[in-house]
Computed example of a mutant assay.
Amino acid sequence: MTKKFKDAIKSRRTFYQIDNKSTLSEKELLDLIRFAVEYVPSAFNSQTTRVVLLTGEAHQKLWNIVKNTLRKRISAEAFAKTEQKIDGSFSCGYGTILYFEDMSVVHALQEQFPTYKDNFPVWAEQADAMHQFVIWTMLEDAGMGASLQHYNPLVDDEVRAAWNLPLHWKLIAQMPFGVPVTRPGSKEVMPLDERVFAFND
């Protein structure tokens, strides 16, 4: 990373205005993702997170799937606004990173450790969230902007079919990214005294 860790965390924001450009080559993007997947922790070292990088036509294909799915489910008026948002914020980027959880691993752990059965799906999503945050921060450090979207579970089946992904992979989130066009505005932060507490006795 070129920035100090704290600076990179502070700079990471949600970027909706992105361009179809990348500061990294395809290999560098994959290396970034592979680094995160190798070193981000998971409960019981379960390593349940699966990450898919879509660029070029695959990136456009994803957002066409999203639009076609929503077109069938919402009113024409609502879809027009949604389509404008997708075309102006997500599909216009360079690529999209898909985050999945391998539920076959989760279910195997539930059988192996029944005492923690209800916890494993929660722990899996926590691990997935850590992957999202690390990759998002590393993209920002590389000069790119991203946002986190959740059109799952509406598009899960079509997405798995489109790239022949296993049925037991559960889609968690979609992260469109590209070179930022504009910076986001200021963000409201709740008083930290209402969110952070310390005790020593």
Rank of each mutant, 00 (worst) to 15 (best):
V179H: 14
P114M: 06
E77R: 15
E194M: 09
Y16M: 09
E140W: 04
L70D: 06
S91G: 02
T115M: 10
D157N: 04
M130F: 04
D141H: 08
P153F: 06
A36G: 07
V52N: 03
F197M: 12
A162N: 01
K117F: 04
W63R: 02
K85M: 13
L167A: 13
F100H: 07
G88M: 02
F5K: 01
V196N: 05
A80K: 12
A162T: 01
E188N: 14
H59W: 07
L24Y: 07
L70T: 01
E125Q: 15
E77L: 08
M175D: 01
L70Y: 13
V122W: 12
K81T: 06
K4D: 12
V122P: 02
H150K: 09
K117Q: 15
V122G: 00
W169I: 09
P114C: 10
I97L: 09
V179Q: 15
D7C: 00
V37P: 00
A80R: 10
M1Y: 12
M190W: 02
G185A: 10
A127L: 04
E125N: 13
D128F: 01
N45M: 05
N119W: 12
P191G: 04
Q174W: 02
K4C: 02
T96E: 03
K3N: 14
F15E: 10
H131T: 07
E101P: 02
F5M: 13
G88K: 04
M175G: 05
D118M: 11
V105H: 01
A108R: 13
T69Q: 10
D19K: 15
E101Q: 11
E140D: 13
P41S: 07
H168C: 03
